[in-house]
Structures are given as C-alpha cells and as structure tokens.
Simulated assay, not measured.
Amino acid sequence: MSNLDQLYRSVIMDHYKKPRNKGTLEGSNVQLDMNNPTCGDRIHLTLQVDDNIVTDAKFEGEGCSISMSSASMMTQLIKGKTIDEAVELAHTFSEMMLGHEHDEDLDLGDVEALQGVSQFPARIKCATLAWKAMEKGINEQIKK
C-alpha cells in the first residue's frame, strides 16, 4: 500500500470515528432521509439554507465507514457555499466516483480521500448517499 493510500485511509477513518457535524438541526429548512437498500446505509440530513447559502449542515445515520465519513466530509465542505455551488460539488463528486477527472483548481479538501472508492463499484453508492440526499433535498425543498 502506498503512503498516499495510507493517508487517504487515515482521513476516512478519522471522519468515521470522529464525525463532523453529527446531529440534527432543529428548525432546518431542508430535511431528507435516504437509504441504500443494497447495504443498509441510511442517512438523515438536515440543512439550514438562508439567502441561497448553506449556513449549517448536520447528519445522522448508520452505515459503513465510507458512507458516514463521506457525510461528515460533505457537511464540512458545503457550509458557506451557495446552493448552486453545493449542487455543483455533488455533481463533481459523482463524476469523481465514476473515475472521471475533475477540475484540479476545485478544492475538495478531505473529500479527495474518497477518490479511491471509484475502484470499487459496489462501494460507490455508499460514498454518494449523503451527496445525493443533499442534492435531492435542495432541489425538492429550496429550488421549488
């Protein structure tokens, strides 16, 4: 295993063992529950969106280290972003999971650690669960 692979695994496990933004936002204006019936991962995502900016994001759920660390990373990354930027990040992440190149100027932070998941097709749904929930929640509850 390369040093980079080891670093990425360490970042994923850190987010899994010490998730950021775990919990529920009371009075949030975006709430969505999603699950992955294939493996049983589930997420309850709550966002606060004010003036088209994601001002806060939290999640609760159960699942593998990939799905829970991805949710932790996503909630960190989208805070302070416009809803359009958050949805664009979801598209970029989906493309990354399919093994496609992404704009290197786009700072994905810890999310870069999940890039290797693209080599394991069965795990892609785990990694994208939170992102799909965020995108669906924004599209259904904010952009209507």
Rank of each mutant, 00 (worst) to 15 (best):
L45M: 13
I124K: 15
Q76K: 07
R9V: 00
A122C: 11
K22V: 08
T24L: 00
M73R: 03
M96S: 13
L77H: 05
H100Y: 13
S69G: 08
E62W: 05
S70Y: 01
M73S: 04
V117I: 12
H102S: 04
W131N: 14
S69P: 04
K79I: 06
L7N: 09
D51P: 11
K22M: 12
A133S: 11
T92D: 05
Y16M: 14
V117Y: 06
G116L: 11
I43Y: 00
L45Y: 04
I53L: 06
D84P: 00
N35I: 02
G80M: 07
L98K: 15
S94F: 01
I78D: 12
G63F: 01
S94I: 00
D105R: 06
D5M: 15
R9I: 04
H100W: 06
S72C: 05
D110Q: 08
D84W: 00
A133D: 08
Y8V: 15
A127I: 11
A71V: 02
T82M: 12
M97T: 11
W131M: 14
V87C: 08
T75Y: 08
R9F: 06
F59V: 04
M1D: 02
Q115P: 00
S70I: 00
G137E: 14
G80K: 07
L7W: 10
D41K: 13
D51Q: 15
E88H: 12
K125H: 09
D41N: 13
I12E: 11
I12F: 11
T75K: 10
M68A: 02
V117H: 07
T38N: 09
D56I: 01
T92P: 02
G27F: 09
R42K: 10
G61A: 07
S2V: 12
I138M: 06
F59D: 02
K144C: 12
S69Q: 06
I53N: 02
M73E: 03
L108A: 04
M97K: 13
G109C: 03
I66C: 05
D51C: 13
D84R: 00
M97Q: 15
A133F: 04
E101Y: 07
Q31H: 14
K79E: 09
A57M: 08
I66A: 05
E135R: 14
L106C: 06
